[in-house]
Computed example of a mutant assay.
Amino acid sequence: MSLPSDRPNEPVGPGRRRRCRRSLTASAVGTALVLSGCGDSSDAGHDAVRLGFVNGAHTDFHTCLQGAVELAAENEGVKLFTANSQQEASKELANIGKMTSWKVDALIVQPVDIGALPADISRARSADTPVFLTSVVPEDTSDILGAVVVDLEEAGRLDAGWIGRDANGKRSEIGVVAGAPGAASDLLVAGFAAALPGNAEIVASRPGMFDPAVARDAAAAMIREHPGLDYAFVANEEMAFAVREAFDAAGAKGVRIVTVNGTDKGLAAIRAGKLSATVTNSPLVNGTMAVRNVLALLAGKEADRIDSVPLVLVTKNNLDQAPQYCP
């Protein structure tokens, strides 16, 4: 479901995607979302609403997030236009400009870089188009319609907490394979580093750019320079699988890896002992909440402007508690 980013795609709506979906319940930490049936504009009453979704990249997370937004829009009977910024802030700004020219009623944006948001929001506001954010939010929320926020710093803290408990006071060396500089990765790493106990030291940190090939090379260099590495924190599971391969090839199978996402492959890797822990960040929950909250806010109905996606630290001991990741 990855889509090109040079122009907004044709609308995804009731006329294009009429296949039924199985019932779904996604719940965690006291938050429940129920998604079922087929989109029906006559029942949903949103057939006149036009939403834009500007995605930030083509990782598994972004692809599943787009699928969730598309599914929720279909079920609510609204028209959806999509574009992808491919991790480039300039493309994000251009996509927002193009979306506003399509006269959407609101824009859902998965940001590339939180530092670029002021320009993005200003571009949309100049066209009287409300902006709703997914995953992250600026400190000043007065200029946005709302957001569904993933507490990325808390996700990092949860992984750091697992390392602290696992190390149990023993001095440990840690490597960090970050994502691309900007919004998500910076927040994840900051939360992780701040929550590490005094006996755990980050001895190496390299960007993996959310690209498994780059992450593999970063991990291979890291283990050569620090053969005594005990743990690695990796900014998403796609990169974590590549990091595991690099460590294993170097004979460092004992390095324990903690990461973020909660995909089916990630949970299987935990079950197999290849990964030690992951923090769930369900794009299915994120995208579903975003569409529903946008529609409620546009209609003046009760909804949290700044809502939170629940996080779960998953290990071998609680695999059954992970929410569904992808539609």
Rank of each mutant, 00 (worst) to 15 (best):
V234A: 03
W162T: 00
V285F: 15
K274N: 14
D264G: 14
T134W: 03
N281V: 12
P11Q: 08
W102R: 14
R244W: 04
S5I: 11
R292M: 10
S27E: 13
R216E: 07
L145P: 04
D113F: 07
P11T: 12
Q66A: 12
T315P: 02
T315L: 08
L152G: 05
A116M: 04
N55S: 10
G39K: 04
E10Y: 09
I257D: 04
V234F: 02
A235D: 07
N9Q: 15
R244D: 07
G156M: 03
A124P: 11
A160T: 04
L188G: 02
T288P: 14
D186I: 00
G97S: 12
K170I: 02
G228S: 07
A124M: 06
N9R: 11
S205D: 05
V137H: 07
M289I: 08
L71R: 15
V214P: 05
Q110N: 15
A155L: 00
A193H: 13
Q87R: 14
V177H: 02
Y231K: 01
D143P: 03
A213N: 10
T280C: 06
A252E: 01
E238H: 05
V177S: 00
A218E: 02
S2E: 10
E225R: 15
A268R: 15
V29A: 12
F81S: 13
G164P: 00
S276M: 04
E201G: 09
A167Q: 10
S42P: 02
E153V: 01
L3Y: 04
G67R: 09
S36C: 11
V189D: 02
V234C: 03
T25A: 12
